[in-house]
Amino acid sequence: MKQEIPQLDSPIRNFGVQLSSTPRGARLARLLATEQLRTWGLPTDPAAHIVAELAANAATHGRVAGRDFRLLLYVVGDTLRIEVADTRGECRPQTRHPTDDAESGRGLLLVDALADRWGTTPGPRPRKTVWAELSLPPDHGNACSGATGGLSQRPRR
């Protein structure tokens, strides 16, 4: 008797790259993520904004001279997960509420507004990973649906 192997309704897709903890590395993370999402036939927004914020934080607050950060994107089922890992595990990200005239400090507020879920995962030491998830529409893996389908919008609080 032949045993059937279960098939996934949608493929598992992943992309990872290690980048320098510099402003240039952060910009490259956004560009590479945008191109990978296009290759997968997924919309670039709001995922590209989330990648930009997490990569900028890794290059600014997670920077250790001579150590890189890692960007990982993957799709499993109906979820796009974005992960950025750096080598400052002792520096946990926190949302701040900057003054109106502050020039920075809004990155995690944007991530919180754009992502369905986000958080941090420790280790292995000295690393930490900041992650964000976006729900995909049910037809994201359907070749007949085209590449124009958007990420689902979460209800606003």
Rank of each mutant, 00 (worst) to 15 (best):
D100L: 14
G66L: 07
P137Q: 07
E133N: 04
D101H: 13
K128S: 09
C144T: 13
T129Y: 11
H97N: 14
D78K: 03
E83K: 11
A115V: 10
P122I: 10
T148Q: 12
E133F: 02
L80K: 04
G141V: 05
T120P: 00
N142E: 13
V111P: 05
L72T: 15
K128T: 11
W131I: 09
E103A: 07
L109C: 02
R70M: 11
A147N: 14
R92L: 15
P124M: 08
A147K: 07
D78W: 03
A115M: 09
G89E: 10
D78Q: 12
D78G: 09
V76K: 06
V84H: 11
G146H: 05
V111A: 03
D101C: 05
P126F: 06
P124S: 11
E133D: 15
L73I: 09
R81L: 09
L71F: 02
R117Y: 01
C144N: 12
T79C: 11
D139C: 07
R92D: 08
E83M: 13
A85E: 14
V75C: 10
Q94M: 13
T79A: 12
G149K: 03
H140T: 03
E103P: 00
D86I: 12
P98E: 06
G146L: 08
L136Y: 09
T99C: 04
P126V: 12
C91F: 08
P122Y: 07
T120R: 02
N142Q: 09
S104L: 04
L136A: 12
G119V: 12
R125C: 00
L114A: 04
R70W: 08
P98L: 07
L109D: 14
P138R: 07
A113Y: 06
I82Y: 01
P137F: 00
C91K: 10
L136Q: 09
R106S: 06
G89A: 08
A102F: 12
G146P: 04
H97V: 14
W118K: 06
D68P: 05
P98F: 05
D78F: 06
A143N: 04
R67F: 10
G149I: 07
L72V: 15
V75G: 03
R96C: 05
T95D: 08
G89M: 11
A147Q: 11
D139G: 04
P98A: 06
I82L: 10
P138S: 12
L134P: 00
D100C: 07
R67Y: 11
A132F: 01
P122L: 06
E103G: 12
A85W: 01
A147V: 08
T120Y: 00
R70N: 13
R81H: 02
R125S: 14
C91A: 12
G66F: 06
A143C: 04
T120I: 13
P124E: 13
R67W: 09
P124L: 09
A143L: 15
E103S: 06
E90Q: 14
P137E: 08
A147F: 07
L72D: 10
L71S: 02
R117S: 07
V76H: 10
A132I: 03
R127G: 14
D139F: 01
V111I: 11
E133V: 02
L80H: 06
G107F: 05
G149F: 05
L72F: 00
P98Y: 05
Y74I: 00
A85N: 01
Y74N: 14
T79G: 00
D112F: 00
L136E: 09
D68A: 14
L134W: 01
E103D: 06
S104I: 03
E83D: 15
P137N: 09
R96F: 03
D100P: 10
T129M: 10
L71C: 02
R81W: 01
